[in-house]
Design a protein around this nucleic acid. Structure first.
Length: 879
RNA sequence: GGGCGCAUAGCUCAGCGGUAGAGCGCUGCUCUUACAAAGCAGAUGUCGGCGGUUCAAAUCCGUCUGUGCCCACCA
C-alpha cells in the first residue's frame, strides 16, 4: 500500500526530488504493519539466559472489564519509553504483559450482560456463570491486546499472563497456604462493609465516602423519669439496639447508668452503659448502640458484653418480626420514623443533615455495615516491612513527596478483609470439616475427603493475586531462571490512585514471599489523565475519549507524544484534541526534515569528518546535539517525561529543522566538498535525534531511521552517547548569526516587505565572526548581491556588523522610527535597571561576582544599543 | 477533624532566590524549490491578597482568600 496521501500540491520535478517519501506522513498506513514486523522479529522478547543486565517492568495488569482508556495509553507510553530506551542501552529489557481478572468488577460487568438477557447469575449457577465470565475474558482480553498493539507497546507477548491462569493460581494458593500456616491469615466475625447489591463484603479501601443528604432524627428512649434522647440518621437500626451509651463523666445521665430502659416499638429493654467513646459535646451526648450494624457500636458491644441483634439481611431487608418485616432498609427508615412519631417519641423534628456515607466503589450502592464471618490478613508485620523497605532506601519513590502518603497508610493499617462472596476469583483453598475444622490445602496437596468436608465458598479479593504480580508472572513458586534474572523488577510505573490497593500490597507480599527481597527498586507514580480543562474524565460527564479515535485520526505517535509531553511526575495530565493535533504536526515536521535531508544526500556512512573540516554551523549543531543527548539522559533517568519531550521537541524543531537546515541550505545547494561534510553532519544529527525520540514516538522514527540508515530497525539500535564534543565558540558565533538574521527580518516585516521579496543589500561583516556566514545570511534574508547603482536606503548595524539594504527609497520612515523608538525605550529601561543595581553598595558587597559581572555586561550592552539606536534614529530621513 | 497540594499570558501548564517561559489560541505578512499539518514577524502577565526575611523574592517564611485531592469510627 502506498504511503502517499496527497502528493499533488507540490509536484516534485526538480533535480532534488526524492520520490520515496511523500510530503505528508500517513501514520495509519505505517503503524500497523510496522508493529507486526517488530513482534515477528522478536524485538520485545527477553531471555533469562542473556548476559546483559536485566531491566524489568511489569505492566499494571488492565482489568478485563472492557477496553483501555486514555489513562492506560498514558501509562503504557511512559513504560514503553522507559523499556525501549533501556533495550537500546543494552539491557535485557522485559516489559511483562498481562491482565487482571478484576473479581468484583468483572463479575458485575458480566452480570449486567446477563441482565440484558433477563437472567441473573443464580439462573446459571456458579459453574456456568464462571464459564460465562471466561468467555467474556476472551473477548475483552483480545480487545485490550489489540489496543496495546495499536499503541506500539513493546511487550513480550510470549509471556502474556492472566491472574487466573494456572500458574498464577498456583502462586496464589502457595502464598495463602504459607500465610495460613504462619498465622497471618485468619477467620473472624466482625463488622465489615457490605454491599447489598453485590452481595459481598468489601475491604475498607473499596469504600467511597460521599457527603449525602440525610435526616437526623432525635427520639426519646425509656419511660417516665428514665428517658434519654438519642439521635440517628439510620432509624431502622433502632430495632437492633441493645444499649444506650453515655460518657462516664456526663453528670446529666449519671443517674441512668446501669439502668434498663424501654426500647420503643419493641418489647425489649436495654441498658444504659458508660463508655468513653461517647463525646458528651456531640448531640445529646447519648448514643444508641447497634452492635450488629455499626463498627463503633460493635466495639462498645464488645466492651460491655452486649448482644448483637441483626435486623437486616444481606440485601438490606428487615428481618425482625413485626410491622416492619420485609421492608427494604430505606422504606423501613421512614416507616419507623412515622411509627415513632405516632408514639410521641420524636422530640425534635427531623432535620436535614449532610454526612459522609460509604458507597460501593464498584456499583455506588450505599453500603451497610454488617456483622459477618470473613477471612483476614494480619497486616502488622507485613506493613512494617513494607514501610521499612522505603524508609531504608531499598525502594525509591518518585516523586519523593508521594512517600508521605505511603507511610501514613502502611503505618496505620487495619487488618485486610480478603474474602469476597463472589463467584469469579480464586476460591479460598480452605476446607471445612464436619466439626468446624479448617484445613488449608496447598497446591500439590489433596483436599480432605470424607463425609461433611466442603471447600470454602468465598473467593479472594482480586488484589490478593495482583499483589503477587511482580514474581508470580516470572514463574514463582518455581525457582525459574526468569525469576532469578528479572526479580526484583527495576521500576514500577503506576498511578498514585493505586498506591494502597496495589503498590502497598505488592510490597507486603513481595517482601514476605520472596524472603525479604523487595518487588522493585523504584516506584514511579504518574498522575491521572484529565480533559483539556483539567477536569476529571468520567462517563457521566461525557468527557471521556477513546484513545483509538485519536490514534486513528492523528497516529499513535501523536497521542504518545502528547501524553509524554504532559507527564510531570505524579501530576495529573490534561489532554485535548488540539494538543494531539499539534503532536501530529511535529511528527510530520520530523518526516519532512528527514525528507529534506535525504534529498540533499544526508548519510550516516563513514566516520564524521575531522573537526578542521567542519563549518562553524556544523560544529554548533554537533555541540548542541551532544548537550541534548546528555540532557535527555538525565531527564529519562529522572522520569521527567514532560521536560524530556519538550527539550527534544525544541532541539529538533527549532535548532535542527529551522536553524541548522536553513543555515546549511546554501552549502547544500552549492554542492562540493563542504556539502558532503554537512550531509554527513546532518545525517549524524538526524540519526541521533531519531534515536533519542524513538522511545516516545516509535513508529515515525523507525520508518525514517531505517530509510536514512538502511539498517534493520531503530528498535534494536544503540542508544546515543554524548561524545563530549562541545564548541562554545561556534555556539556563540551562530547565536550572533541568529541575532542579525532576526533583527533584519524584523525590519523587513515592519517595512511590509513580503517574505520572498529579494532586496539588494551590501553586507559589511568585517571584523565580526559573521564573515563566513555571509552566503547563509543572504539566503535566509533573501538578500541579493548589490549590483550596479546600489543605493542604501536603510542601514542596520547589529552585533558589530552592518547590513545595508536598497529599498529604492521606499522606506516607511514612520514605521521604522516607531520600531527604533521602542527598542530605544527598552534599552534605556535596561540601562536604568542595571545602573540602579550597580549603584547599590549593598548589592556590590553581597552579590556573587558572576551576578555583578552579568549586570555590568547588561549595562554595557544597553549603553551600546542606546548609542546605536540614537544614531539610527537621527540618520532617518526626516519628514 | 487531620494531612497533602495548587493559585504564573485567553486556555493548559513549566520555572521555585539573580533581566517573566512553553504549547495551543490570538494579530499581520507569505505557497521564500523539505514541510501551509508550514515559514517569518508581533501582541498579551501589578507571577491570588497582605505582611516579613534578603543587596535581590514568582521563587524562602507568616497570614488571609479561593480551589483540588487523600485519610478519619462526626452518633
Amino acid at each position: 500500500m502506498a504511503v502517499v496521501t496527497d502528493n499533488t500540491q507540490r509536484p516534485d520535478s526538480g533535480p532534488n526530488s526524492a520520490p520515496e517519501l511523500p510530503t505528508q506522513y500517513a501514520p495509519a498506513e505505517v503503524e500497523g504493519p510496522l508493529y507486526e514486523r517488530w513482534v515477528e522479529r522478536g524485538y520485545f522478547e527477553a531471555d533469562a539466559k542473556s548476559d546483559k543486565p536485566p531491566y524489568t517492568i511489569v505492566i499494571p495488569p488492565p482489568n478485563v472489564t472492557g477496553s483501555l482508556h486514555l489513562g492506560h495509553a498514558f501509562e503504557h507510553t511512559l513504560i514503553d519509553a522507559l523499556v525501549r530506551r533501556k533495550r537500546m542501552q543494552g539491557f535485557e529489557a522485559l516489559w511483562q504483559p498481562g491482565m487482571d481478572h478484576a473479581g468484583i468488577a468483572t463479575q458485575n460487568v458480566v452480570e449486567r450482560e446477563l441482565a440484558k438477557e433477563g437472567k441473573s447469575r443464580h439462573d446459571l449457577g456458579r459453574e456456568a456463570f464462571v464459564e460465562r465470565v471466561w468467555q467474556w475474558k476472551a473477548e475483552s482480553g483480545g480487545q485490550i491486546a489489540g489496543q496495546m498493539r495499536r499503541l506500539g507497546n513493546g511487550v513480550a507477548w510470549s509471556r502474556d499472563r492472566f491472574t487466573m491462569d494456572e500458574g498464577l493460581s498456583r502462586a496464589v494458593q502457595t502464598v495463602f497456604k504459607k500465610m495460613f500456616d504462619d498465622g497471618l491469615i485468619y477467620r473472624a466475625e466482625r463488622i465489615i462493609n457490605w454491599c447489598p447489591r453485590c452481595l459481598t463484603a468489601i475491604s475498607d479501601i473499596e469504600v467511597d465516602y460521599q457527603d449525602d443528604d440525610g435526616e437526623l432524627v432525635s427520639m426519646t428512649y425509656g419511660e417516665g423519669e428514665d428517658t434519654i434522647v438519642v439521635a440517628t440518621t439510620r432509624a431502622e437500626t433502632m430495632l437492633g439496639d441493645t444499649a444506650v451509651a453515655v460518657h462516664p463523666d456526663d453528670e446529666r445521665y449519671a443517674h441512668l447508668i446501669g439502668k434498663q430502659i424501654k426500647l420503643p416499638l419493641t418489647d425489649r429493654t436495654i441498658p444504659v452503659v458508660a463508655d468513653t467513646h461517647v463525646d458528651p459535646e456531640f448531640g445529646t451526648g447519648a448514643v444508641k448502640v447497634t452492635p450488629a450494624h455499626d463498627p463503633n457500636d460493635f466495639a462498645i458491644g464488645q466492651r460491655h458484653n452486649l448482644e448483637s441483634i441483626e435486623v437486616l439481611d444481606e440485601r438490606g431487608i428487615i428481618t425482625v418480626h413485626g410491622p416492619f418485616l420485609g421492608l427494604d432498609r430505606f422504606e423501613a427508615r421512614s416507616a419507623i420514623v412515622a411509627a415513632l412519631r405516632a408514639d410521641g417519641r420524636i422530640v425534635a423534628e427531623k432535620r436535614p443533615y449532610v454526612h459522609s456515607v460509604g458507597h460501593c466503589s464498584r456499583c455506588k450502592t450505599t453500603l451497610e455495615p454488617r456483622l459477618s464471618m470473613q477471612w483476614w490478613v494480619k497486616v502488622e508485620t507485613l506493613a512494617k516491612a513494607a514501610g521499612d523497605a522505603v524508609r531504608d532506601g531499598r525502594v525509591d519513590i518518585h516523586p519523593a513527596d508521594m512517600s508521605q502518603r505511603y507511610f501514613d497508610w502502611v503505618d496505620n493499617l487495619n487488618d485486610w478483609c480478603i474474602s469476597r462472596q463472589l463467584w469469579w476469583g480464586h476460591r479460598i483453598p480452605v476446607w471445612h470439616g464436619p466439626d468446624g475444622e479448617l484445613v488449608c490445602v496447598g497446591p500439590d496437596e489433596e483436599p480432605p475427603t470424607g463425609e461433611g468436608w466442603t471447600q470454602d465458598t468465598d473467593v479472594l479479593d482480586t488484589w490478593f493475586s495482583s499483589g503477587l504480580w511482580p514474581f508470580s508472572t516470572l514463574g514463582w513458586p518455581e525457582q525459574t531462571p526468569d525469576l532469578e534474572k528479572f526479580y526484583p523488577n527495576s521500576v514500577l510505573v503506576t498511578g498514585y490512585d493505586l498506591m494502597f490497593f496495589w503498590v502497598a500490597r505488592m510490597m507486603m507480599f513481595g517482601l514476605y514471599a520472596m524472603d525479604g527481597q523487595q518487588p522493585f527498586h523504584t516506584i514511579a507514580f504518574h498522575g491521572m489523565v484529565r480533559d483539556e480543562f483539567g477536569k476529571k474524565m468520567s462517563k457521566s460527564f461525557g468527557n471521556t475519549v477513546n484513545p483509538l479515535d485519536w490514534m486513528d485520526k492523528y497516529g499513535s505517535d501523536a497521542l504518545r507524544f502528547t501524553l509524554a509531553r504532559g507527564a510531570n511526575p505524579g501530576v495529573d495530565v490534561p489532554i485535548g484534541e488540539d494538543w494531539v493535533q499539534a503532536s501530529r504536526n511535529f511528527a510530520n515536521k520530523i518526516w519532512n526534515a528527514t525528507r529534506f535531508a535525504l534529498m540533499n544526500g544526508a548519510t550516516v556512512e563513514g566516520d564524521l569528518p575531522p573537526v578542521e573540516q567542519l563549518s562553524a554551523t556544523d560544529r554548533w549543531i554537533l555541540s548542541r546535539l551532544n548537550k541534548t543527548v546528555a540532557e535527555a539522559d538525565a531527564l529519562y533517568d529522572d522520569y521527567q517525561f514532560a521536560k524530556l519531550a519538550d527539550a527534544l521537541y525544541h532541539f529538533a524543531w527549532d535548532e535542527v529543522f529551522d536553524w541548522y537546515v536553513e543555515l546549511s541550505k546554501t552549502t547544500f545547494f552549492e554542492g562540493g566538498e563542504q556539502a558532503k561534510v554537512s550531509a554527513r553532519v546532518l545525517g549524524e544529527v538526524l540519526d541521533v535525534t531519531l534515536r533519542l525520540l524513538h522511545p516516545i514516538v516509535p513508529f515515525v522514527t523507525d520508518t525514517l531511521w531505517t530509510t536514512l540508515t538502511g539498517r534493520e530497525s531503530v528498535v534494536i539500535a544503540d542508544w546515543p552517547k554524548d561524545s563530549g564534543f562541545r564548541d562554545d565558540v561556534a555556539e556563540q558565533e551562530i547565536e550572533l548569526v541568529q541575532r542579525v538574521v532576526t533583527e533584519v527580518r524584523r525590519f523587513r516585516s515592519d517595512q511590509g516587505l513580503q517574505p520572498g521579496q529579494k532586496v539588494p543589500a551590501r553586507l559589511n561583516l568585517d571584523g565580526t565572526a559573521l564573515a563566513p556566514h555571509e552566503a547563509a545570511i543572504r539566503q535566509l534574508l533573501r538578500l541579493q548581491p548589490e549590483g550596479e547603482g546600489f543605493s542604501a536606503t536603510a542601514s542596520l548595524p547589529v552585533a558589530g556588523a552592518e547590513v545595508a539594504l536598497d529599498l529604492s527609497g521606499t522606506i516607511d520612515v514612520a514605521a521604522e522610527r516607531k520600531r527604533l523608538a521602542k527598542d530605544l525605550a527598552a534599552a534605556e529601561k535596561e540601562k536604568a535597571q542595571a545602573e540602579g543595581k550597580l549603584g547599590n553598595e549593598a548589592f556590590l558587597a553581597k552579590a556573587p561576582d558572576n551576578v555583578v559581572d552579568k549586570i555590568r555586561t547588561r549595562l554595557a550592552k544597553a549603553e551600546e544599543d542606546i548609542v546605536r539606536l540614537q544614531n539610527q534614529i537621527s540618520s532617518l530621513p526626516t519628514g
